[in-house]
Simulated scan of single mutants.
Amino acid sequence: MEIELSDYMNELIGLQEASDEAHAAVKRLQEERDDSGHQTEEQRVAFRDAWEEWREVWEPLQDTLTYYAETMGLDRGELEAAVQKAAGHVPLPVED
């Protein structure tokens, strides 16, 4: 499916990029944990805040993807894949 870049795609790409950035912050904090999983109070608060920030941009992205897919009669999965590709995601290899 070829989707023409337009205002709605620019909006979706912006949301995807914001979600990716917030998710990267969560992943960085996860990697900073020691092997025992022990966290200081400061690490716990930082992780909670990062998780909430990610959720605050991820949920609108999902809602907006669904809205545009339904409104424009597009397959939601294909739209999401097109947005992720435009935002620089590398597709995961398909396992046989």
Rank of each mutant, 00 (worst) to 15 (best):
A87R: 03
G77Q: 00
L92A: 08
L12Y: 02
S6W: 04
L5P: 12
A69G: 03
Y68F: 12
E56H: 13
E32C: 05
L61P: 00
G14N: 14
A46L: 09
P91S: 06
H89M: 06
F47W: 11
A69I: 01
A82S: 11
E95F: 14
L12P: 02
H38T: 09
E42P: 01
L79G: 06
D49K: 15
R28A: 14
A22W: 07
R48P: 02
A22S: 14
F47G: 03
Q30R: 13
L12I: 08
E78W: 03
E32K: 13
G37N: 09
A25Q: 14
E59T: 10
D7Y: 09
L29H: 07
A18L: 07
P60L: 03
V90P: 00
L12F: 02
L74S: 00
S36C: 04
P93H: 09
D20N: 15
E59G: 02
L5D: 12
A82L: 06
D49H: 12
L29N: 08
A46Y: 06
G88H: 10
G88L: 07
T66F: 01
M72Q: 10
N10H: 11
V57T: 15
S36N: 02
Y8N: 11
Y67T: 04
W51Q: 14
D63S: 10
E41K: 12
T71G: 00
A81G: 00
D49L: 14
